[in-house]
Every structure is written in C-alpha cells, then in structure tokens.
Design a protein around this nucleic acid. Structure first.
Length: 554
RNA sequence: GCGCCCGUAGCUCAGCCGGAUAGAGCGCCGGACUUCGAAUCCGUAGGUCGGGGGUUCGAAUCCCUCCGGGCGCACCA
C-alpha cells in the first residue's frame, strides 16, 4: 500500500509540474512518506510540501493545497487533508484496504519477502568463538543475531551465506593442549603446577578423562612437547564438537566453517603481507612489520609481524578479510562482541588498503548479556571462569525463549536477560504471547475446517466484507510486514521484527476477543477466515525469521 | 588522558538519516470466561526524553558542553 501511495503522490507531483502549478525541481531527498501515528492524520503522511517550501520559496501549506487538489480525484483515497504546518495526510479508502487483504493472502508463504537487497551477495560471519571452551551466553546472543539477520536478509532479497571463522592457530592452541596435558597428569596422581592463565574450566578435565579412557596411561611419561600436538588436536576436536552441538540445538547453522590454519597453510597470509608491502601499506621498523592503518583513520599503526618473527592475530585477520573480499561478496558483515569495537578501524583499513570501498564492510557490535535471576545478575566474568554457558540457558528456558529474548533488544545495547520471565509460561512472557496468537489461529483453522469452510477458494471470498474498523486495522498491520522486514534488513536490525510481532500479536488478541471469525454469516466468515489465514502466515513467517517455532498447539 | 557506545515511565527497553499530542513489555491496582483456546482481553496510575546551550517552521532525534554508566586503548589472543 505504501508503494501505491508513493506512486500516487509522485504522479500528482509530475502533473502539477507539467500543468505549470509548480516549477520543475527534483524531489528533495528529505521527502518521505510515513505511516501516521494518529488516526486523525489518516493512514500515511507526506512532508513533501515542507521539504519543497525552502526550494520553491513558497509557503508549505500553499504547496500542499496545490498537490491535494490533484489527489482528491484518486479513487485510492477516501480523503486527502492538508494539516499542521503543511503535511499531506492520506486517508486510504476502506475498500482499497479490504482489497489489500486478498492481495496479501494471494502471496501465500512468500508474503513479507521483497527485492530490497537487489540480489546483492552478503557474507555474514558470526559467533566465530575460539575452540578453547564452550559457548557462553554472549556467543548465544551473537548466534541469535547473526542467524536471524541472515534469514531476514534472505527474505529481503539478498543472496546470503553464513560463515564461522575458527581461530585454530597460535598461542592459545598451545595453552589449550598444555592445559589438558596437565589435567591428565593430575588425574594420574602427578603433582602439577597449573598456571593461572591456563584454561580453568571443568571441561578441560572432562577432555583429559576422555583421553585417559581411550588411550590409558601411555602419555604419563611422555614429555609435554612431544605429545602436545595430540592433546591440542583432541581438545579442539572435542570442544568444536560441543560448539556445533550447541549451535545445532539452537537451530543455528552455517554454510561454511573457515579455518584460520588454512590461511597459513595455503600461504594466503604471507601473500597478503607481500601484496600490502608492495603497495606501501606495510613497512618495517624496529625489526617488526607494521601496517599503516593510521592512513585510514586508525589511532596508531598496527603490528603484523613481531620482531621475533611471529605473526600477530591481526595478520591472519587481514588475510581472512582479503580472502572474503576476493570471493566476490558485495557486503561483508562481521558480528563481534562489543568489547572488540576498537578493532573496527584496523579491519576497515584492510578493506580500503586492498582497494575496496569502505562500505562493503559492515561491523555489527553485540553488547554483553546480563543474566538476571531473582532480580540479581548472575556472575559471568571471564577471569573467574564462572561464565554461564549457552547450553545452561538452553536447558533452562528452551531455544524459543532464548532466541526471542536475545532479539528483544537492539544488538548494540546491553541486554538484561530475565531468566525468571523467560521460564514463565504465561502472558508476561512475550515469546509465548506471540506463539499463543499463532496457536489460536491454528485452532480457528481447525474449527473452520470442521465446519467445512476450508480450504478457502479466494475467488469466492468477498473481501469487501472486511469493512469493520478492526478488520481494516488488522489488514493495515499485515500490510506493514514486508516493509518491516525490508527495513530490518536495510538497517541490519533483527529486533525490529521482534517488536513488530509483539505488536501484531497484541492487536490480534484484542481482535479475537471483540470479533468472531466463524459466525452466522457465511460470507463474512469466509472473508474473516481469509484474514485469519493471512495473519497466521505472517506470524509464522515472522517467527521463522527469528528462528522461533510457530506451534499449532500449546 | 584519548576513542566508541549508552542515559527516555518504578524496572527493562523501543522510537534517533529532524516531523504533528513521546510508546511498548513487565510490575502495581481494579474488572471480564454458558459461544471460535482466559497462555487472553478491558480499564486506572505513571515522564523537566540526564543537565545546559546552539542550529530552524519544527529537536528524544543534529551540533557543542557538562554530569553519570559501560567498553576499548599491546611487537596479546
């Protein structure tokens, strides 16, 4: 409907120009049509006259009146008003809204999708937790945001792939293997000195026990240096297995898993350094190699290879982003924990130094999660090792509540995750509130089926009967769905879909209390069942974009 | 000290590329089940949008400044 109003206004503007009522001038970029907040202001409002006024040097109300006179003949509108300082308010006719229900219904399961993304290729990289321990709630939020964003981008017409980058190289791997080795020794009765900066979690002991069960005591007297590769690879294998299982149970999947080791093995890191050195972006100083990131606005230059010859993590990151760019994506989305925000300028520098436009990189920063139980925050500081795992939350509240809660806030803001609320199975819990709307609609469908109304034959449904204020209001909400998804994709903000669904469910529950779908009037019943079916599909589709199930029974 | 993010109802937060009378959920209080699912609905109360200044027809939204909170500032990963 938005598009139709926009088209009508534009056509009217062109007509005003051609008839000499208004001088020729391009539409101001500040011009926009927005849904009206108040019913007195109609369905949509345009600020065209306001934005045109300074250019044309004419009072905005006078411009608005000129346009209004040309719009009043359009049958799409019941009325067009000029209001306030010069807004043009559009009152779409009831019949046009009612007919919109048929159009929404006709789109079936595709309703909500759009071509906003114009087929652009996007790589969404997220989670990418080091295989040195289980996923915690912070990763869980990143997983929910990344996976949901990918689904939303797809629905909005982007060609999307998802990827998990595995940091399986470097000192941390050594530390991981050594941690398991020491625990293995400890279990077998040796006195050990376990360093504070080694991995403290119980899962390290579990892995040591597993090795003991499978391999026995054969490594007891083998020097650490000799069997470290074995302990490391076993640990990575076990931990990765756990991470994959957690993600699978969270309904998060990746198109590819990209190993950092591969960047080194295939010489991509060295090649990237050479290339950037040749182009003058990397220089040598004090025996180390530096990337001149300050040339692109970073605070200071960054070391790529230390004077002792060891490559930094940044070196691999550089190579990884180069590799991603060369795979031909139009947009790279990196989803990081907000504590990494200081790394944005240097990665941005990499993209630019390689000759790419800076806006091909989009970094989403996901803020930390505080788990609240009994009104107080559960500890999750990493230094004490007392962080709460994603697994624990999944086992506690279930994947649907977890995903919904992770997506209730803008990714950029702190999230207080209320465990007590997430566990509740009542109206206070927003995820059940939305799911219940779906289950209710499914129940209506079952009753309609029994009464012989289903399946509907759309051609035989008189949607013109959907003329009540509630019917129209519900249609308007459904009408906003594709724009919500498109906007959510454009802004890369999945939480908008969560808010939309809560609003839709809220209105639906009220509608359900006030109006009957199945009543004495067969024609009205059929029209409302068509509306019910459209509503149910929107809720199911919306929940699907969040990765939340849409139950038919609860 | 420098940089980034955040201060909106009792609590948790939307709204922020400037638009008309600032919203939601939770919590509190009071109502509604003989008819499609009460995991629901209806109603009441609740605000100097952190303070101050600026930009303009118009500021929660943009700019400056101050206050308060979070995070980051390695030849670490």
């Amino acid at each position: 409907m938005y598009d139709r109003v926009h088209a009508a206004l534009e056509a009217c503007y062109r007509e005003a120009v051609s008839r000499g009522f208004l001088p020729e001038t391009p539409l101001p970029s500040a011009h926009q049509i927005v849904p009206s907040k108040q019913t007195e202001h109609g369905d949509f409002a345009s600020n065209l006259a306001l934005t045109l006024a300074p250019v044309l040097k004419r009072p905005p109300r006078s411009i608005a009146e000129t346009l209004k006179d040309l719009l009043t003949n359009d049958p799409l509108f019941e009325r067009v008003d000029v209001a306030g300082p010069g807004f043009i308010n559009f009152f779409v006719s009831r019949d046009a809204w009612a007919q919109q229900a048929a159009s929404i219904h006709a789109h079936g399961d595709q309703y909500g999708e759009s071509q906003e993304g114009e087929g652009k290729r996007v790589l969404v990289e997220f989670v990418s937790a080091n295989p040195t321990g289980p996923l915690h709630v912070g990763h869980g939020r990143g997983a929910a945001v990344g996976d949901s964003l990918a689904r939303i981008l797809k629905a909005a017409g982007y060609r999307v792939e998802t990827e998990y980058y595995i940091n399986d190289v470097g000192n941390q791997m050594r530390t991981l293997g050594a941690s398991v080795y020491l625990r293995y020794q400890e279990i077998l009765g040796r006195t050990i000195d376990f360093p504070a900066d080694y991995y403290q979690g119980d899962y390290i002991r579990d892995i040591a026990n597993k090795i003991l069960a499978e391999q026995g005591e054969r490594y007891l007297d083998v020097p650490q240096e000799e069997c470290l590769p074995y302990f490391t690879s076993e640990a990575v294998r076990e931990i990765s297995k756990g991470i994959r299982k957690d993600l699978e149970d969270f309904d998060v999947s990746f198109d590819s898993w990209f190993s950092e080791a591969r960047l080194h093995e295939e010489g991509i890191v060295e090649q990237t350094i050479r290339e950037l050195r040749d182009s003058g972006h990397i220089y040598e100083q004090d025996g180390a190699l530096w990337f001149r990131t300050t040339a692109f606005g970073d605070e200071k230059d960054r070391v790529v290879r230390r004077s002792n010859g060891v490559l930094t993590y940044f070196a691999a990151d550089m190579a990884y982003h180069r590799h991603k760019l060369e795979r031909g994506y139009d947009i790279l989305v990196d989803i990081w924990g907000a504590d990494h925000h200081g790394y944005v300028p240097r990665i941005s520098a990499v993209v630019q130094a390689l000759g790419h436009d800076n806006n091909r990189l989009r970094v989403l920063l996901v803020q930390f999660v505080s788990l609240i139980e009994g009104g107080i925050a559960k500890g999750m500081s990493t230094r004490s090792g007392e962080f709460v795992t994603l697994r624990a939350v999944l086992d506690d509240v279930g994947p649907d509540a977890a995903r919904f809660f992770f997506l209730m806030r803008k990714a950029d803001s702190h999230l207080d995750f209320d465990l007590d609320l997430a566990r509740k199975q009542g109206q206070e819990n927003p995820v059940y509130y939305v799911q219940y709307a779906h289950a209710r609609l499914a129940s209506v469908a079952r009753n309609a089926q029994e009464a012989g109304y289903l399946p509907l034959v759309p051609e035989n449904v008189d949607v013109g009967r959907l003329s009540g204020a509630d019917d129209i209001a519900l249609i308007k909400l459904l009408d906003a769905f594709p724009r919500t998804v498109a906007e959510s994709a454009r802004a890369m903000e999945p939480h908008r879909v969560t808010f939309y669904l809560t609003e839709l469910a809220s209105f639906f529950h009220g509608y359900y209390t006030r109006s009957r779908f199945i009543g004495d009037d067969p024609d009205l019943t059929r029209a409302r069942l068509l509306l019910a079916e459209a509503t149910r599909r929107v809720i199911r589709k919306g929940l699907g974009l969040l990765g939340v199930s849409a139950p038919t029974h609860m």
